[in-house]
Amino acid sequence: MAKQHKNLVSFGIWTGIALLVAVPVVLATTSPYLGYRSMAYIIGGFAGIVALALFLLQPLLALGALPGVNKAHSRLWHRWVGASIVVAVLLHVGGLYITSPADTVDALLLVSPTAFSIYGVIAMWGVVITAVLVVCRRRLRLRFSTWQLVHNGLALVVVISTVIHAVMIQGAMEEVSKWVLCVAVLATTTGALALHWVVKPLSRRRRLDRKALSD
C-alpha cells in the first residue's frame, strides 16, 4: 500500500513536471507570430523558452529530489542540464543577433529601449560566469560551502532575472502558461535554496541540541 502510494506520488510529480515544461513549449509552437519570423528568430526564441523550462529541473536535480533518480544520476543530469542551458543561451543570443544585429548589440551594451533586455543580459552573464566557475572549479580550490554559496547565489540571480525578462516580453509564448512556468521555476529555485540553506541547517542544529541534551 505504502509502495503504491509512493508510485502514485512519483507519477504525479513527473507528470506535473512534464506538463509544466511541455505545455508552454507546445502552446508557443501554435503562436501566429512564428509565421512572420525567420528561422533564426524562431530558433533563438525557442532556445530562450527551453532555457526557462530547464531552470525548473536544475534545483530539483541539485537536491536529488526527483523520484526514481538516485543521487549520482541526479548530479550527472544536473551537469547535462546545465550544459544544455549554456547551449540554449548561446542559441538564443546568436539567433537574435542573426535576426537583428543592431537590436541585439543594443541589448548587450545595455542601451536598448526595452527594459527586459537588461534582465536578459544579467541572466546571460550569470550563466556565463556560472559555466566558467564550473569549468575552473578544481583549479579554484574553493571550500565546498563557499562554492555552494557562489553557485547558488548566481543561480538565484539568473533565475529571477530570467523570469522578469520572460514575463515582460510580448512574444510567441502564451501568457497563462508562461506565468505558470515562471511561478513554478521561482518556486523550485527558492524552495531548493530555502531547504538547503535554512531548513536543513536548522533541523541539523535541533538534532545536535537534542543529542547534547540526551548526553
Binding site: Y36, L96, T99, T114, F116, S117, M168, I169, Q170, G171
Partner: peptide, 8 residues
C-alpha cells in the same frame, strides 16, 4: 504590426 524583439 506584430511584436518584434518583445514589443510591438
Amino acid at each position: 504590426i506584430v511584436p518584434n524583439f518583445g514589443e510591438p
